[in-house]
Design a protein around this nucleic acid. Structure first.
Lengths: 245, 245
DNA sequence: CACTTTCCTGACCATTTGGACAAGTTTTTA
DNA sequence: TAAAAACTTGTCCAAATGGTCAGGAAAGTG
């Protein structure tokens, strides 16, 4: 009954205490329930937005009493913020550095594929982010103004260098990043529309591959670049993963 | 005190009764208030989604008592639906027909420009639509399954014909339409993100022109098409407008 | 002008909301 | 194993919600 206000700080026990079995490690209950609540909240918030989501709704989806949810997160906003913390962290992890020496075509192709993959594996996070931004980004405003702005500045600098070196057509680098961002995001955010138009009940894994290939083709060609082979892209992605891991 | 339930049908008096002055034409109060409520509702729904929007909030923005709002629209859902009726109508009006004989480059360029223009003139409608689709399109589901599917089928048929005739590169026509849709929509829906990244308080009119030109360049080139001059695009748009009017 | 229709709105209501809290149970620790 | 810490949850509450309704004001009509 003690730590009510600080109850929603992340990762109390970072590493397992030595000698404790995994099953009985302290904090495991907290971890399990937090994860469960966050998963439920992600669905609810992505479905109804911040104001439209009720704690009761989250609780029901998590199959916990409302009071229990409020034990772990002192109020609705904290749940919402906790979600964005983990979403932003994940994005930062994915969006790797690029260097002027890198190959433009391979780098862009890899970025497109990674972003589509993100839409496939984390569609709810994508929709949640979309909702937040549509509503004026009240929570992630700071993050966009700082981290993401910097991220875009760095990347567009490298792209501009590629252009100056004559390695690709002269297109506005920021616009190019926005184009890749929006067209890839779209598969997660507008899933309902796409499925209805294509008369399908669900995406198949190939849908994402096709989408990524299509986007790579059109955008790279649009930038005056040769489209690398699928193998080359996959290979580049693997190298990047090894470097990151 | 009579027509409470049918109060929210559109356009009671289609034409002005002859001999009536415009100021005193019956139904003018209804029309004015309905418009006012719908404008307020558009902002609120685009900002908070369906569940997150309150009638009280709409009423306050429209500077009317809540009861008055409920006099014109018997419940929240009716307001929401009325909005989508007008949005869909506007879109249908904009999205003109295309023929296999048309020039691919000019037609696509015009479509991109028209869509960006839509993001500029009706950003709230765009965001409202985005919210609706993210939430699974509960209201516009039918429209997407019928009208919009047909629309995409027709267009992609023509594009496929262009490809078969060797007039453009072989790209998936449906994916192409989705790409144009998403990249143009993005400027309205993710306005907050773009402005924060570009460190601006507001869009300038040129921002939209730049965006449209950029997208035209990259997408058309990506489809193996020559990019028409800005004048040619503007001219084609005017001709289309005359034909539509 | 009288009378009908349309418009307006304050008062009201059942339900839901976010959240506080106390009294309990379970788990961890010394 | 007993005390401490962590966890659980039913109960409660004030405020907000969607929506009703009756009764009055204004506008339109013959």
């Amino acid at each position: 009954m003690t730590n009510r206000l600080e109850a929603d700080t992340t990762k109390i026990t970072e590493a397992l205490a030595p000698g404790k079995s995994r099953r009985n490690r302290p904090g495991r209950i907290r971890e399990r329930n937090r994860d469960c609540i966050l998963a439920a909240a992600e669905r609810e918030f992505a479905l109804h937005g911040f104001r439209g989501t009720t704690i009761q709704g989250i609780a029901e989806r998590a199959e916990l009493p409302k009071s229990n949810v409020l034990y772990y997160f002192s109020n609705k906003k904290r749940i919402y913020c906790a979600l964005f913390d983990s979403i932003m962290e994940r994005w930062n992890a994915m969006l790797s550095e690029i260097e002027p020496e890198d190959d433009p075509a391979l780098t862009l192709a890899r970025f497109i594929h990674a972003k589509v993959e993100m839409s496939r594996t984390h569609p709810l996070a994508s929709r949640l982010f979309a909702m937040e931004v549509i509503q004026g980004a009240p929570i992630v405003k700071d993050h966009l103004r700082t981290t993401m702005r910097e991220w875009v500045r760095d990347r567009s600098g490298v792209i501009q260098q590629w252009i100056d070196d004559g390695r690709m057509a002269a297109v506005d680098p920021v616009q190019l990043i926005l184009l890749i961002w929006s067209s890839t995001q779209h598969y997660a955010d507008f899933q309902a529309q796409i499925l209805l138009i294509e008369n399908k009940a669900e995406y198949t894994p190939e849908d994402f591959d096709h989408a990524a290939d299509f986007l790579t083709q059109v955008i790279l060609r649009g930038c005056g670049l040769e489209v690398p082979s699928a193998e080359a892209i996959a290979e580049a992605a693997e190298i990047a993963e090894v470097q990151a891991g």
